[in-house]
Design a protein around this nucleic acid. Sequence first.
DNA 1: ATGCGTTTGTGAACGTGTGCACAAAGATGG
DNA 2: CCATCTTTGTGCACACGTTCACAAACGCAT
Lengths: 268, 268
Amino acid sequence: MRRTPVGRQTRARGIPEATVARLPLYLRALTALSERSVPTVSSEELAAAAGVNSAKLRKDFSYLGSYGTRGVGYDVEYLVYQISRELGLTQDWPVVIVGIGNLGHALANYGGFASRGFRVAALLDADPNVVGSTAAGLPVRHMDELESIVAGQHVSIGVITTPPGAAQQVCDRLVEAGVTSILNFAPTVLNVPDGVDVRKVDLSIELQILAFHEQRKSGEEPEEGPIEEPPVRERTPGPVRAAAAKLRRAAGGKDTKGDSDRQAVLPA
Amino acid sequence: MRRTPVGRQTRARGIPEATVARLPLYLRALTALSERSVPTVSSEELAAAAGVNSAKLRKDFSYLGSYGTRGVGYDVEYLVYQISRELGLTQDWPVVIVGIGNLGHALANYGGFASRGFRVAALLDADPNVVGSTAAGLPVRHMDELESIVAGQHVSIGVITTPPGAAQQVCDRLVEAGVTSILNFAPTVLNVPDGVDVRKVDLSIELQILAFHEQRKSGEEPEEGPIEEPPVRERTPGPVRAAAAKLRRAAGGKDTKGDSDRQAVLPA
DNA sequence: ATGCGTTTGTGAACGTGTGCACAAAGATGG
DNA sequence: CCATCTTTGTGCACACGTTCACAAACGCAT
Ligand SMILES: NC(=O)c1ccc[n+]([C@@H]2O[C@H](COP(=O)([O-])OP(=O)(O)OC[C@H]3O[C@@H](n4cnc5c(N)ncnc54)[C@H](O)[C@@H]3O)[C@@H](O)[C@H]2O)c1
Ligand SMILES: NC(=O)c1ccc[n+]([C@@H]2O[C@H](COP(=O)([O-])OP(=O)(O)OC[C@H]3O[C@@H](n4cnc5c(N)ncnc54)[C@H](O)[C@@H]3O)[C@@H](O)[C@H]2O)c1
């Protein structure tokens, strides 16, 4: 195991981001094993349960330390504890949810939320019609109370489920109040100062990515082969390019890349 | 006809996955510009709007082709069209949502859903109490109808919002029926045959990642220093290591790496 | 103790992604 | 047609991530 590589100037310590993103996955698989009272698990088995390659899993764990016993595997309970600790789940994380509409309601009702150290400290909304109602047994409070709640309960994580137009403003207010991690469900790019983390969950983007691959499946390419790629690219004399670009823009035609110009490149 | 550089065996054609994941972001920013009737935009401006580095954006676009005019920028409308086409959004994508509980309801009501070529073909549930009710104006149909709906409307994208225990089973059925892209909201690893894409949205994972970074901010390391490494060190005779490992496992203590053994290692 | 089968931990090769920095393309004005 | 100014498209270097493959470590039986 040695010691940290140190050699690098970047990330002298610390766990690679890609690894951090997988730790919750391992933790989930381990928790399931733990509930079945499985005492130990090999990297192969656990990797299968988590849906990753076993070498990757071992390398991931190697960043945490040398847990695991050669010839045997990993002690499930011990690993659960180590990963939980590394992820900071041994402490309590109060969370505020801002924007209690369709999605905010669903999140508030989400059980798996509290299961792992996360606790809904408050539900907040700006709409007087919503404020005062309850969701999942919790009262919806008015935005005016945001600052006092965040300060009073030391909330450092905020969830934004407002319409996109309100997201940046809500974000600013959360940050101002002291929140330093934000989970954003609104389809907006949030601007935050250094030191504040933002992660986003964007249904629309996910669907579009699926659509992209879906198109590839049914459409063009035979699935795997070398594939014929379109012409144009690299070498087209300057002047012509310019003219072509002009034409394109003027006429809304398609050009250059992809199945497009299988046919005629220039309309003319 | 030409054909791709071919040199690589991997991804001979095609757009890098990281780029694909950003295209929807660019598209969203461009759509906003389009609505404001902005005719052209520079990579710098658009990158700012999308929250990315301008060099990255230019490189991303370069995979699509040579749209854009030097000294001017990109034609907004034209780019919107090109990206839409590349993502497959110029066609209609019927989608089924399975599991109309809290989250399924929220998704069904989500307006931004239909806005980009995605159309809810059907809402499905197994619970007789839910079947027959309506969500967002659509009737909730019984799972029995899944196969006929998927086949009849050529649905290739399915969204799973059932409890985790039902997810794999639902997934299998979707795939069997002909769905080849799945968006999974249940916290489960789905097994699918080759050719089927799965993307997941996992609130719990996102929160855990935030917690990890949050812990780093407030907690331990001074932010950058070389770090003091724990004892153990490289050369520890075999037997001792073994004994140590045993102890660890037996007592649920922590060991080896990092800040761990700050406080009391063993509860007792 | 020694040997055997198993499984970890990791070096090293490779693939993917990012960002700099700049030549070349084009616009624009004379 | 030339000079100048802007902005793209991309070569290149480096950072990050993944996977292979294997020695070393360990449990266990003899
Ligand atoms: N519903 C979904 O499934 C879904 C899916 C993906 C993304 N989203 C996004 O999530 C967000 C919420 O979606 P929704 O369907 O719940 O919308 P919604 O309109 O049902 O709820 C939004 C809530 O935010 C509140 N709000 C508005 N402005 C506010 C402000 N300035 N401060 C505090 N609260 C404010 C509103 O009163 C309302 O209760 C939207 O940005 C949407 O695009 C929703
Ligand atoms: N609610 C949230 O905000 C949230 C957040 C993150 C993840 N999730 C996950 O999303 C999923 C749904 O969450 P929810 O809060 O909407 O749960 P829910 O219990 O409210 O809804 C689940 C629905 O699925 C239906 N269902 C159960 N088994 C089915 C089957 N075999 N076939 C078809 N339908 C079936 C149920 O009848 C119910 O209507 C869960 O896996 C949950 O962990 C939810």
